[in-house]
Simulated assay, not measured.
Amino acid sequence: MRPRTQYPVNTKQIVIGIIVVFFLLFVFRSAFSSSNDRVSSSISESFKNIQKPTKCSPTCTKIPPSLAQALVHYSTSTITPQQTSKEVSVTKKILDKKSPCNFLVFGLGHDSLMWSTLNFNGLTVFLEEDEAWIEQIKKRFPMLESYHVTYDSKVNQADILMEAGKGSECTSIGETRHSMCQLALKGLPSEVYETTWDLIMVDAPTGYYDEAPGRMSAIYTAGMMARNREEGETDVFVHDVNRVVEDKFSKAFLCEGYMKKQEGRLRHFRIPSHRDDPNKPFCPLRF
Rank of each mutant, 00 (worst) to 15 (best):
V238I: 12
E211L: 14
G174S: 12
M1R: 13
E128M: 06
I173F: 08
V149Q: 06
T54V: 06
I50R: 09
Y147H: 15
M114V: 05
E233H: 09
R227Y: 03
D37N: 15
K48L: 13
H239M: 03
Y209Q: 12
A222T: 03
R4L: 14
Q13H: 07
S168W: 01
S168H: 11
R229N: 08
H178S: 13
V9D: 14
G109V: 14
Q157E: 14
C101W: 05
E246W: 09
V155T: 12
S146V: 11
T54H: 01
A252H: 01
Q182P: 00
E131P: 15
K251Y: 01
E233D: 15
R2P: 10
D276C: 00
F237E: 12
F282I: 12
R177N: 14
R265Y: 00
N242G: 06
S66N: 03
V125Q: 08
S30Q: 13
D276T: 05
F282A: 09
R243M: 10
R227T: 07
S40H: 13
Y147K: 02
D130V: 12
L108E: 03
L127V: 10
Y7T: 14
R177L: 00
E169P: 02
Q13G: 01
F282R: 10
D111P: 07
Y151K: 07
Q82S: 06
S153Y: 02
L183I: 06
T61K: 08
V72Y: 12
V244S: 02
Q6H: 15
D277R: 07
V155K: 11
D240F: 05
N49P: 04
S217T: 04
E131K: 14
T76Y: 05
P272S: 00
R38T: 07
K138T: 13
K62W: 02
V149K: 04
C56K: 13
K260H: 00
D37E: 15
K62C: 04
L188K: 02
E256P: 00
E191H: 11
L123G: 02
Y208I: 07
G107K: 12
L67D: 02
G107R: 07
V88M: 06
S99H: 10
S99I: 09
M201H: 13
I19H: 03
A184S: 15
P53S: 01
Y147P: 02
Y193P: 08
Y151M: 13
S57F: 11
M224K: 14
D277Y: 01
A252D: 02
T84P: 12
L144T: 06
R229C: 08
P100H: 06
K280W: 03
R265N: 10
D277I: 03
P81K: 03
T11D: 08
I200P: 11
F126Q: 05
R265G: 02
W133T: 09
P142M: 07
G214F: 10
E131N: 05
F47H: 11
